[in-house]
C-alpha cells in the first residue's frame, strides 16, 4: 500500500523535482476523501499506489467511486463541483492535488475519460493533434508521435480525415487513447475503456494497452467494471465499494479470492446462486476497510 510518508513527501517537494527513490511509487493516493457539492460524500478514504511501469486496476460496481478517484487524480473534479477534502495525492513524490489538469498533463498524467469524449466535429487527426496542445517541442516531434499513434492504431490512419463523431465506438475509444498518447504521458488514467464495445474490440483495446505499457513504458491506472478482463492485464488491483477500498492484492490473488469470484466474476464455489441469495451474502459479508 501507499508507503510514502506525508512528511517525506513534503520535504521532497520542497527540494524541487528530485528523482524519487527507486522503490517509491509513481503515483500515491493517500486516504483521500471527496465531497461533491459540499454535501455528497463519495470517497471515504481511498488509498492506492501505482508503481512505475505498472498496470493497476481499479474495480468495482456502478457508483463505487472509480471515476471519482480518477478525476480526483487528474483534477477534473473541480469542474464537477467536487473537492478533495482530506488526504493527499502525490506524483513522483510531489503533491499534485492543487494543480490544474493542464499542469498535470504537462507533468505526464492524463486521463482518458469514460465514454470516450472525442471531439465530434473535429477529424480523427485533429482530435489526435489536440492531445499535443501542452507540448512545446515543435512540429516535427508532434508529427513523429502522430506516426507512432498510427502505428499502434492503423485503423485511425485510414479514418484520419473523417469527423470523429461519425466513427464507430471502437474507433472513438482508440482516438481517445491516441489523443492522450500525443501528450507524451508517463501515466494514463483510463476510465472504462470497455464501455459499450463488442468483446472482440475490448480485447483489442486491452492488447494495445498492454503493448503501450511494455513498449512505451506508460503506466496505467485502469478503472473497469469488466473485472475478468482487467485482472488478466493488470498486475495489481483494488476493489472499491461505496467509496472505500475493500480489498487489494496482486491480480493473481484477487482472481483466486472467493469473494471476488462470488461478487465480480460470477463464479462462486457453490455454483450459481439466485440474485436474492447474492444480496443476502453480500450483506452478511460486508467488507470494511
Amino acid at each position: 500500500m501507499a508507503s510514502a510518508q506525508p512528511a517525506a513527501g513534503a520535504t521532497r517537494a520542497s527540494q524541487g523535482p528530485a528523482p524519487a527513490p527507486a522503490n517509491a511509487p509513481l503515483l500515491a493516493v493517500n486516504n483521500i476523501e471527496v465531497i461533491y457539492n459540499h454535501v455528497i460524500l463519495v470517497l471515504k478514504g481511498v488509498s492506492l499506489s501505482v508503481p512505475e511501469g505498472g498496470i493497476v486496476a481499479l474495480l468495482g460496481a456502478n457508483g463505487a467511486g472509480k471515476s471519482t478517484t480518477l478525476k480526483a487524480i487528474s483534477n477534473l473534479l473541480k469542474a464537477e463541483r467536487g473537492e478533495v477534502t482530506k488526504g493527499s495525492i502525490e506524483y513522483r513524490g510531489e503533491r499534485v492535488d492543487t494543480l490544474t489538469p493542464n499542469d498535470l498533463v504537462r507533468r505526464g498524467v492524463i486521463q482518458v475519460m469514460e465514454g470516450r469524449h472525442c471531439f465530434g466535429h473535429l477529424t480523427v487527426e485533429e482530435n489526435l493533434l489536440t492531445g499535443a496542445f501542452t507540448r512545446a517541442d515543435g512540429l516535427s516531434a508532434t508529427r513523429a508521435d502522430l506516426d507512432l499513434v498510427y502505428s499502434y492504431f492503423p485503423r485511425l490512419k485510414e479514418r484520419r480525415s473523417s469527423l470523429a463523431g461519425y466513427t464507430s465506438g471502437g474507433e472513438q475509444q482508440m482516438t481517445a487513447i491516441g489523443r492522450a498518447l500525443m501528450s507524451r504521458p508517463k501515466m494514463i488514467l483510463l476510465d472504462e475503456p470497455s464501455m459499450g464495445l463488442a468483446p472482440q474490440l475490448v480485447e483489442e483495446i486491452f492488447e494495445i494497452v498492454a503493448r503501450l505499457n511494455k513498449q512505451e513504458g506508460v503506466s496505467f491506472l485502469l478503472a473497469e467494471q469488466n473485472t475478468n478482463m482487467a485482472l488478466r492485464y493488470a498486475g495489481y488491483g483494488y476493489i472499491l465499494e461505496n467509496g472505500r477500498v475493500v480489498l487489494d492484492g496482486s491480480a493473481g490473488t484477487l482472481s483466486q479470492n472467493e469473494d471476488v469470484k462470488e461478487f465480480y466474476l460470477g463464479m462462486g464455489a457453490g455454483g450459481r446462486k439466485s440474485f436474492r441469495e447474492g444480496k443476502h451474502y453480500r450483506r452478511r459479508k460486508r467488507w470494511l476497510a
Binding site: 469542474a79 493542464n102 475519460m113 485533429e126 489536440t130 496542445f133 501528450s183
Partner: peptide, 20 residues
Amino acid sequence: GRALRAVADDHQAAQSVGIP
C-alpha cells in the same frame, strides 16, 4: 484554433487533454 474548436465540442474532454 484547433483547441478553440475542441473546447466548443466538449469542455471536459478539452480539459482532460490539458487545454486550459
